[in-house]
Structures are given as C-alpha cells and as structure tokens.
Nucleic acid binder design. Structure first.
Lengths: 197, 197
DNA sequence: TTGTGTATATTCACTGGTTAGTATACATAG
DNA sequence: CTATGTATACTAACCAGTGAATATACACAA
C-alpha cells in the first residue's frame, strides 16, 4: 500500500507545506504538489476533495508545531516577563535569517486569499492567531497584569507586524526593535499592576 | 484617439488598481484588467511590457496618495504628539470598516510574491514603507525625541501589524489597540526627551 | 488646400503552455 | 469479492504573451 513508512496523505501534506509556504497558494499547482509528494494527481484528489481543502490541511498542519515553538522560546528564556516576551522576538529574528524563511504562512495565505473571506484556510489562520493571543493573555493574567488581553493583542500586533515588515525589507533587525517595544509595553503593564497593590 | 478624457494608460492602471487590490496579483488575469479598462489585451501590452511591469505600475500609483493620506490624518489631529500618532490608527480603523477594504496593497503584494525577492513591485513597496518611516522619523526628530528612528520603526511595526491582523480577523478594533500602544510608546519616548533637559 | 510619410495607438486572431478537476480502469488487502 | 488506494489519460477552461494588420494624428511638402 504505502510506498514508504509515512502514509501517503502525510507525504502530500508535507509536499504541500514546502511548496505553498515557499511559492504561495496560487503560485503552486496541484500537479506540482502531487509530483513533489511522489503520487499522481488522481491520488491527491482521493485524499483531498479540492485544492482549497489541501490548502486548509497545509495550514492546519502548521498550527500546533508553530504554537509549541513560541511557547518554548518563551519558557526557555531567562529573566522576568518582559525579557521572556522579548526572547520570542529574538528567536524569531534568528529564524528569519535563514534563507528559506518567508514570513508567516498564515498571514501570507490570508493576504493572498483576502477576497475569499470565508475560506477554510483563513478560518484556520484566524483560529491559530487567536490561540496564540489566548495563550499570551492567560500567561499575563496569571502574572496579575491589568488588562492582560490588551497587552496580549499589542504584542500580537508587534509580532505580526514583524512578519510583514521583515518579509518586505528582508531585515530581521526589525524584529529586535519590535521585541524592545513589546518588552517595554510589558514592563509598563507590570508597573501598573504593582502600583495598585 | 482617446475614448474618453482620461488617457488609456491611466485607465489601465486604474483598472489594475481595482482588480489587483481586490483579488491579488495572481488572482487577476491580464485579460481581466484589459476588459475592465475597456481595451484589448494587445493595447495593454503596448503600454506595459509585461504583467510584472503592470503590477509595478499599480503599486507606484498608490505610493503618493497613500503617504499624503497618512500625513493628513496626522496633521489634522488635535492634541500632542501621542494623540496625533494615535489619530493615524483611528482613521485607519475607520477606513478598514469599509467593506471593500482589503488591507495594505504593498504588504499583500509582498506576501504574495515572497518567492521573487527582487521583483520590482516589492522594491516599490519597500521604498513606500521606507518613505513613511522616514517621514515619521523626521517628525519625531523635529520634536527632539531621543532615538527617533527607533520610535518610527516601532510605530511602523504596529501599523503594518494592524493591516495583517485586521485583514485576518476582520476586526478593526485591533487598530485602536495598536494606536494605544503607539501613543504610549510615543509618550514614553517624549518623557525620555524631557528627562534629559 | 491637398497629398503623403511616419510615429503613435489600437484591434483581431492566435499560440503554446498550464490549470483544476474527472472518467475509467487497475491493483491490492482483508 | 469488496473497500481502499493508485495510475493513465483526458477535458474544458484559462493564461501570458505575440504576429500582422489597421487606424489615427500630425508634420510638412506640393
């Protein structure tokens, strides 16, 4: 049945991931994905009912590992909350220096498919960002920060701004600048918490 | 000669603007642009040597009006520097509530063509953002703010983050949150200026 | 005024290639 | 012998770009 140890469906998703992330959705044909996965197009259409379905699977597959990475960057960092927040941006800058880096797959897909608001891939992207926002918010809340959601959203804005700006200018130092802003906003929010106790 | 008062070339750019902004670059065929402009495809190729050339013209055409709008929002606002900065975000949120709004054309194009780093359209987008950053920086410098470039970049990050996040979630309130962050970072930078004098 | 050449502007019709998706048949396992 | 999975071969539409011809405007000579 399977040509190798990894199931056909997973190989297709893996091929889709490499191609869609690199060249965008409309820049990659279903034939190209099938060829990269080592299957015929007909086999691909056995596992996915349409290209849109495949795109959704591509993003759904990025959700968990992506979030896990951010959480790990955060928890591995030394220092207080501002330093831990800043560490996310520093690690992101390091990723962005790899030549194959092409920004955030969720944001790039949502930008490309902006004229299809209800597209499954966009819903998956939105859910992904909400999960990250929710995790940040819960973390801040546990630290007793006032208006944790507001701070979480401001950091998310800086993060997604980093993706966009660094993709445009190809200058990862913007991520460090964003990290400083995030750190400073976090420190200010912590000061507001302390001042009330 | 001309079918109407406005030159053919301008009508083509105008059609390209409407279609590319709405549906993305690869989502729009040259035939579609020609049809919308009321010319044949061959005429379009008389005025533009390729689709890439047309895309570049589409963005080049957005550069000046876009910057002028931001400057006007800033200068029309009442209050101190933080309030003027925040006004940009408030006005942007108002724009984003229009149903035809689809984020930033420069960022969306750079996201879609991320696998073509030297593409003329991306260069035009990068230059556009640098112009905005430069204007912000000069404004802050004139106000005697310490490290004006740093603040300018942080605000740019919040702004471009707004575009990305609001496009994904279709929730313009993120822009007001970004405006608060920008205002707060600006106020902090002004305090640093004052504290040294 | 009239004819004529030339650059500009536009059209029709076409090409070679690509695309998403499918009809049909074949294989293999339980 | 039936459900799952894979392959060959196809369709109908679309797409970027082009060849060849035509129309228009205008400068200038007769």
């Amino acid at each position: 049945m399977a040509r190798s140890a990894v199931p056909t469906r997973d190989r297709i998703i893996s091929a889709a991931n490499a191609l869609f992330y690199n060249d965008g959705i409309r820049g990659v044909s279903v034939d190209a994905v099938a060829e990269k996965a080592g299957v015929t197009k007909r086999t691909l259409y056995y596992h996915f009912k349409s290209k849109d379905d495949l795109v959704a699977a591509y993003l759904a597959n990025r959700d968990q590992p992506n979030l896990a990475l951010f959480r790990q960057w955060f928890s591995d960092a030394r220092g207080g909350l501002p330093a831990k927040v800043e560490a996310i941006f520093r690690n992101l800058a390091r990723s962005a220096r790899h030549p194959k880096w092409k920004g955030c797959g969720f944001l790039r897909t949502s930008a490309e498919l902006a004229n299809m608001p209800g597209h499954p891939a966009i819903r998956i992207g939105a859910a992904h960002k909400k999960k990250f926002e929710g995790w940040l918010c819960a973390t801040f809340e546990a630290e007793g920060i006032a208006e944790p959601l507001r701070l979480a959203r401001q950091i998310l804005l800086l993060l997604d701004g980093s993706f966009a700006v660094v993709l445009l200018h190809r200058d990862p130092s913007y991520m460090e600048t964003a990290g400083e802003a995030a750190s400073s906003l976090t420190a200010a929010a912590m000061a507001r918490r302390r001042s009330r106790h």
